[in-house]
């Protein structure tokens, strides 16, 4: 008794049902990448609204303990290796040649060298750096708040996005709210030391509220804009990663 009783043969309806169920996986697997992209186009606006809703300038993400810092967990990712910035790997003697350009729809566009950046209020944050690939690392970043730089250049009311250009031609674009979040910084220090070349020296983006691919290394230019230019969403975003990338 209670033996599993299966029919010796399937009738048409059952066969169709079984076929339907077992083929779901195969069907989905053979879906074209266009269909996959459509799923993204269809649902990403909802996900983006959800992400934007969560970003509040007055809500700070709690920091981690210093003992939680795990330098080995931070993997090195770049799409084209470490760039040769300002002629040759970014050696200490080249640091005075570096300039950070801030322009776009701002009242006072500027070019700043590292000494000028050092005059600004310094901050640091111990945060979880979350990569889109699924790994995460707790890192301490130190530098200046992007919002302090914005106060200097004074973006016009029309500015809604911020574009970042890097020495390796990597590009990024952000919503203004996330860029002006008090925990978004342009970092020149990592785990208390001067920022290593491979991690984006002399200046890189850091924030606890965005995925790692939004955190450009080797930043050379920050532009406040009213619209993201066509093809300028960002290196990975143009290939299919979501634009907002909030976490």
């Amino acid at each position: 008794m209670n033996r599993l009783k299966l029919p010796s043969h399937l009738n048409r309806r059952q066969a169709i049902q079984l076929l339907g169920m077992s083929s779901i996986g195969y069907l989905l697997n053979s879906c074209s990448s266009e269909f996959t992209a459509k799923v993204g186009d269809l649902t990403e606006p909802l996900n983006q609204s959800f992400g934007e809703l969560l970003v509040k300038p007055q809500l700070l993400i709690p920091e981690f303990a210093k003992s939680a810092i795990d330098p080995k967990a931070l993997l090195l990712n770049s799409y084209d290796g470490t760039p040769e910035i300002v002629g040759g790997a970014f050696l200490k003697e080249n640091r005075d040649k570096y300039r950070l350009t801030i322009d776009g729809e701002v009242k006072f566009p500027m070019e700043l060298n590292l000494n000028a950046l050092k005059q600004l209020p310094q901050t640091s944050i111990i945060m979880q750096h979350v990569c889109v690939e699924g790994w995460a690392a707790i890192v301490q970043w130190g530098g200046v708040r992007l919002r302090d730089l914005a106060k200097m250049v004074q973006p016009k009311d029309s500015a809604r996005y911020v574009l970042f250009q890097s020495a390796d031609k990597y590009t990024e674009s952000w919503d203004l709210a996330s860029a002006l979040h008090p925990q978004t910084i342009l970092a020149d220090r990592m785990n208390g030391e001067i920022l290593p070349d491979d991690n984006g020296a002399p200046l890189r983006l850091a924030t606890p509220i965005k995925l790692g691919y939004k955190l450009s290394k080797w930043v050379t230019k920050v532009s406040f804009v009213s619209q993201i230019p066509k093809g300028g969403k960002g290196y990975w975003e143009e290939q299919g990663y979501e634009w907002f990338g909030g976490i």
Binding site: G25, Y26, L28, N29, C31, S33, T36, A37, V39, G40, L42, T43, E44, N47, V132, E133, W236, Q239, G240, Y241, E242
Partner: peptide, 17 residues
């Protein structure tokens, strides 16, 4: 054959959709 989306961004599209 067990995965859906073709690559990471495609998988994320399906997963978060």
């Amino acid at each position: 054959w067990m995965t859906l989306g073709g690559w990471l961004a495609g998988g994320r599209n399906w997963h978060f959709g």
